[in-house]
Simulated scan of single mutants.
Amino acid sequence: MTTEKNDQKQNGTAHVTDFAPVLTRGAEAETTRDPSSVMTLLADSGDTGGRLTAYRSTFAEGAVGAPAHLHTAAAESFFVIDGALRVLVGEEITVLNAGDFLVIPPGTPHAFAAAPGATADVLFTFTPGAGRFDYLRLLGRVLRGEADPQEIKNSSDRFDNHYVDSPVWNEELGGHA
Rank of each mutant, 00 (worst) to 15 (best):
V122P: 00
T13H: 13
V142W: 07
H162M: 05
D157V: 09
Q8S: 13
H15L: 03
V164T: 11
V38S: 11
F79L: 14
T108L: 08
S156N: 10
L138V: 12
E92G: 03
T108G: 10
A75Q: 14
A73D: 12
T32P: 07
G65D: 01
G140Q: 03
A75C: 08
S166M: 03
S36A: 15
T119Y: 12
D134P: 05
K153T: 15
L173F: 07
S156H: 08
A20Y: 05
A114P: 13
L41N: 10
T125E: 05
L23R: 12
V168E: 03
A75W: 11
E171A: 15
G175D: 06
A130M: 15
T2L: 12
P105W: 05
V89T: 12
G117A: 06
T32Q: 01
F133W: 10
Q10I: 14
L136T: 02
L42G: 00
P128Q: 02
L70Y: 14
F133M: 01
V89E: 09
T108K: 05
R86S: 10
V16P: 00
D82M: 00
S156Q: 14
I104N: 01
V95C: 01
Q150K: 13
L85S: 03
N6V: 15
R33V: 10
V168T: 04
E91L: 08
T53P: 10
E91F: 03
P167W: 00
V142S: 05
A114H: 08
A66W: 01
V122Y: 01
E28M: 13
A84N: 10
F159E: 00
G50C: 05
R25S: 11
A73L: 06
E4G: 10
L88G: 08
F19G: 04
E151H: 07
D165S: 08
R137L: 02
G131V: 00
L88S: 07
A111I: 04
Y55Q: 11
G99D: 12
A43G: 03
E4C: 06
T119V: 13
T58R: 13
I152C: 08
V80P: 00
D134A: 15
V38D: 08
A177G: 15
I152Q: 09
D44P: 01
A130N: 13
P167L: 04
V103W: 00
D44W: 02
A120H: 01
E91K: 14
S156R: 11
G83N: 05
R144V: 02
A114V: 11
K5R: 14
N11E: 09
